[in-house]
Write a protein that binds this DNA or RNA. Sequence first.
RNA 1: GCCGCUAUCGUCUAACGGUUAGGACACGGGGUUCUCAAUCCUGUAAUUGGAGUUCGAUUCUCCAUAGCGGUACCA
Length: 480
Amino acid sequence: MVKVRFAPSPTGYLHIGGARTALFNWLYAKHNNGKFVLRIEDTDRERSTKESEQEILDSLKWLGLDWDEGPGKSADDSMYYQTKRLPVYHKYAEKLLNEGKAYKCFCTREELDAERKKAEAEKRAFKYDGRCSRLSAGEIKANIDSGKPYTVRIKVEQSGETVMHDIVRGEVRVQNSTLDDIIILRADKMPIYNFVVVVDDVEMGITHVIRGDDHLSNTPKQIHIYRALGFELPRFAHIPLILGADKSKLSKRHGETSVMRYKEMGFLPEAMVNYLALLGWSPDSEETIFTPEELASKFDLDKVHKSGAMFDNKKLTHINGVHIRKKNIDDLTALCVPYMKKDGLITQDDVNTRLEFIKHTVFLQQEKLQTLSEISALSDYFYRDDIVLNADAAKVLEKNSAEKGKILEILLSVLETAGVDKTKVEELLKTEMEKAAIKPKAYMHVIRAVLSGTTQGPGLYDIIETLGLEKSRKRIKAAL
RNA sequence: GCCGCUAUCGUCUAACGGUUAGGACACGGGGUUCUCAAUCCUGUAAUUGGAGUUCGAUUCUCCAUAGCGGUACCA
C-alpha cells in the first residue's frame, strides 16, 4: 500500500511551497487509496514553537488536506513528534557505533567553522576529512574521560558513486567523493534531520518520499544512511520548487506566502488546491478547473514537471473567481459574512434577523467576486444610510445635469405607484421615460449613480428592489 | 568555488522523432448588455545558443550559456 508523509518543521507558518508539497502527497495518497501521514519534525529546538505547529495544522485543515495518521489521530501522538522519539534515534545511532559504521567526532563546531572559512577564502571546497574516525581507542577514551562533547558521524564510502532513481528526475548520480561523513547526532545528542528522516520514514513504512527539489542533494546522504542501517530504500519523487517573480525560491520577500494569509485575503481552499495542483503538474486534458476530488482521481507523479514554477497571483485569483461562482448562495453567504462583519457592514444581529437580505446582496455580487474580501466594497451601498459618490458617478451626474432633475422626478412618481418590484418598476419607468423622451442610457446611468454612488454593479432594477422604497426615495430626494 | 538540477508564449503548461507548436492566465479587439462583471468570438505572443545523430529534431547526445538548489552540530 502507498504510504506518504508530509513532515513540516514547526518553525514558522505553513507557506505556499509547503502547502503544495503537502498537497502532492495528499493527492498521491488519495489517488492510490494509500495513507497520508503528518509528522512534526521538531528536532530544531531553538526554532520550533507550539504556535507554529498549531498554525500549520490549522492551515492543512483549512486546505482540506486531512491526514490519516499524525497529531490528533490516535490516543498516543508521540510517534509523530520527533523530539518524543529520541530514544529510538539513539538506539539506531548506538547500533551504528557498535557496528563501526559510525564514529564519535570530537571536533568542535568552532574548529570546523574556522576550517570552512579558510577553505572558502582559498576558494577550495570544504570537506571534513574524517580525522576522528582514525583516532585510536586510547585517544577516544581520553577524550571521553575528559568530558569532551562529541557528535556522531556516519562513515561514508569515498569511492564509487551513488545512483538514485527519482520518479520525476530520473537517474541522478553523485560521486561519493563529494560527500563527507554525515553528522547524525549533535553534541547535545539531538539527532539531525538527515538521520531522523530516514529512521522515521522506515519505521512508519513510508513507501514514497515526495518532497521539494531542495532536498534532492540531501538524498544521496540519506541513501548512505539507509544502507548503513540496512534499510530498504523508498521511492523518491522530488517536485519542482515554487518560485517568486525573480525566479528564486518563493519566500517572504516576494510577498504573501502564508497559507492563512490567503484565507484572510478571501481565497477559497478549493481554489488554492486547484491552483497549487497546476503548479508543476498538469492533467491529460486541457481543463483547468477541478475539485479536490477530481484532482485526486487524476493526479499522478509521472505528469509532474521538472522545472520550477513561478507563483502567479493573477491566475490564482481567476481560479478563485471560478470557484466562487460555483458556490451555492447559502455557502457563499456564510463565507462572506465574516468579511462583511469585519468591514462594519453588518453585525451578528443582522445575521440573525435579516439573513435573507444579506444572502440576496451576496447573490447580486456573486459573478463579480474574485475574492471573498471584495464583498464589502461592492455592496456597501446596500447597507449604508447614504451613498458615497465616487468620481465616475459624479461625472455621470454632471454630464446629465440638464435632465437629472426630470429623471429623478419621474422615478420618484414611478416608485410611488409601482413600489420597488423590479419588473413593475422596469415596465412603468420605461413607458414614463419614453413619454418624456429620455433615452434609457441616460436615465439608467443617472439613477444608478444616485442610488449607488457608483457606475457599476448589479442590474439597476435589482438595486432598486434590494434597496427598498425608503432608502431609494431618500437618496433620490437627497440628489434633487 | 565545488556538487546537483533545470531550460517551450510575459506567466502556468501541452506536444509516440513528423502538429499551421495546442490550451489556460494576463493583455488587445469585437458580440451581448442599463454599467461593471460573467459569457461568446477573436488577436498579439514561445522552442536559450552552437555542434552532432537522423530523410526529419521542441523532443535524443555533447558543449556553451543562463537560472535555481545544495554545499550547517537547519529542516
